[in-house]
Design a protein around this nucleic acid. Sequence first.
DNA 1: TATGAATGAGCATTCATTCAT
DNA 2: CATGAATGAATGCTCATTCAT
Lengths: 215, 215, 215, 215
Amino acid sequence: MNRVSSRPPSRRDEARALFRNAILHAAEVVFAERGFHGARIQDIAAHAGTAVGTVYNHFDDKDEVLAALLEARSEEMLAQFAPAGGDPRAFEARLTARVARLLAYVRQHREFFAIASEHGLFAGSASPGAPPASRRLRRVEKFRALFRTLVDEGIGADELEPLAGDTLARFLGGTLRAFILSSFTDGEVDPSRQARIVVDLFLHGAARRRARRAR
Amino acid sequence: MNRVSSRPPSRRDEARALFRNAILHAAEVVFAERGFHGARIQDIAAHAGTAVGTVYNHFDDKDEVLAALLEARSEEMLAQFAPAGGDPRAFEARLTARVARLLAYVRQHREFFAIASEHGLFAGSASPGAPPASRRLRRVEKFRALFRTLVDEGIGADELEPLAGDTLARFLGGTLRAFILSSFTDGEVDPSRQARIVVDLFLHGAARRRARRAR
Amino acid sequence: MNRVSSRPPSRRDEARALFRNAILHAAEVVFAERGFHGARIQDIAAHAGTAVGTVYNHFDDKDEVLAALLEARSEEMLAQFAPAGGDPRAFEARLTARVARLLAYVRQHREFFAIASEHGLFAGSASPGAPPASRRLRRVEKFRALFRTLVDEGIGADELEPLAGDTLARFLGGTLRAFILSSFTDGEVDPSRQARIVVDLFLHGAARRRARRAR
Amino acid sequence: MNRVSSRPPSRRDEARALFRNAILHAAEVVFAERGFHGARIQDIAAHAGTAVGTVYNHFDDKDEVLAALLEARSEEMLAQFAPAGGDPRAFEARLTARVARLLAYVRQHREFFAIASEHGLFAGSASPGAPPASRRLRRVEKFRALFRTLVDEGIGADELEPLAGDTLARFLGGTLRAFILSSFTDGEVDPSRQARIVVDLFLHGAARRRARRAR
DNA sequence: TATGAATGAGCATTCATTCAT
DNA sequence: CATGAATGAATGCTCATTCAT
């Protein structure tokens, strides 16, 4: 995840990181407020308490700022969704826990994810007119890969229907996205409760559970 | 939807509509190619074979062009998804038919929906920096309302779990979106087949169907 | 010289040319005042009484403005230096007349030629950091070609030493340039008088004319 | 020329001179490659293997770097052109020797002189938008003064036509410049041979040497 | 109404220069 | 003195919009 470095961060490195993070945080706020195209580098710099030029000392251009921000948040988001090692609970319970963590994290950065979702964070579609896609796709692919792993694991454990290809991964992604986005509009909702609903729908669908055993 | 008019379209009205449609088609192509912000009014005009000024004779501004385009395509899309009157089949079969029509329609306009989805067509999130939202939300709301109606009907018929609020509507929307977007990347897939998968997942989820009765 | 056109200039064409010329004249003034890099497009536009955008409607970028200006003035300058058809006078007299016309023309645009000479108008050297050279060289080549023609003609008429290559053309160019540039600094000097000096030096050199017959 | 100093250069002074020269050499390369305006202080520093700040420890600003470079090269160039003390040969032979040395020196620094000549090294014209001119003119004046001295000496020795003012000095400068610049484009040419041609043209002109005595 | 050139506010980006370390 | 990141004024260029023809 992090670039491996043989030496401890010097004071200078720390200073660099400080500026870089200040700018990324500022960008998160400003992008969320005005959207990518509405955000002026000057605004970001002002929010970060730096000069315009400083932004360009840390990022090649505006696109790069967005890219870095998406990269950082994705990484954090993926970390939340990663399985907790050695969770002894059953499949559904473990999945629910992971989804709950994901939803909780997203809630922290809700404004940001509103734009992020429009710049291909969950995409599946290539947002046109955007950077060479390569970087973006790599990010999206990480999610898909994670979903895929999860789904394959579930299939292996005979917990999920063995559907071909990315079908289930997409289904999971779409379901998550729908509830992530709605959590932006809704007032405070308990992530655990919502995670239970999401996982339940993902696993058992919306159909009326008639004479079925207690789930 | 259309302004109600008491008189039949004159030749002049027809000429107007011709230009208007040419521009909308051009906009669809150019937006899809370059994204909203990357598309210049001049490009759209060129594609439409008109002058820039003509675009402004038909639309107030650039946002209006996108709005009108989204409006038109949404309307058509909604029409596809509308229930076929007096379909005697069971709930699942009817739903599958509607989804199949929807998927088939989207396939026709796939490039366009790539942007559309980034401008809140399915959103649920307010894309910041975008037109006054009011117009956009109205459009999104139509979908949500349609999903809601469908879901409520399903609940009423005791076919769907009676979950509170928009939960199921969102779930349906998210599931649909996931498969619509993926249909952009995938090669040719039969809409009917895909519709069956979508509806099946929506209704019965991804969990392994163990000793359950044949559905 | 001018692009051949099958139709007479419409009123619209005339309007275009008006703007274009206004901009070129403005550029001449501003470039002369502040140098190429010191000249802001905005200044040029202001001097021309147009908006900034208008400059860009007529020229691709700042370089293009300079290029067009150099092109125009070179063309005019070449026209001045062109031989007057059917001049019955002797070689030296004819050459003097041409040089006189050239000096007179340059005097009209003296401020401009001050920069022009720094942007390769007479160059022989490729000014580094400048536009792809191709255009510039073409211009410079025209002069060299003209000098070359003149010189070859002189050699053919047994009036000039038959030195190899471009030697004499360069010599002529260098001599002219020296006196053109000095005419920027000097007060009013009669072009005819100066032309006589230039041609005399070019033909007979600076050495003391001892027992030589009257030239 | 150099600030007069009463004490021998200490080790510290030597270190200073080392940096200073490294920077000047770097500047020569970078200016030649990209032109004055295209050259960034950062590039020069990088080429010199120093930090940006170091450049500013040795020169007040960018203009100063160019000025110092021009100054240094001019000085060296003047030194080459200076008469060799007590040369017993005739005027023409001595002049040829000096010109040959000059051409040989310029050949060493050909890339540099390409820009130098655009920044008024030989100019006679004030390049607008450039440093206060005063410094530049001083440099140019040195050349002119040298040419003037040479020319006056020649006139005094009854070797050159006694033309008024700077006429002959200019003629000499222009002739030299033409051949210096052309030496940038041409492949290897023997400086001595070229010097002979230059001096011959300067002294005797381009006219056919008819019944004249052997020169 | 169609046309398309003119308009000019707006913004990303550059780079000479400073200064704390 | 050397260093190199921070600074921010400066400017080329874009493009939505207007309007005279």
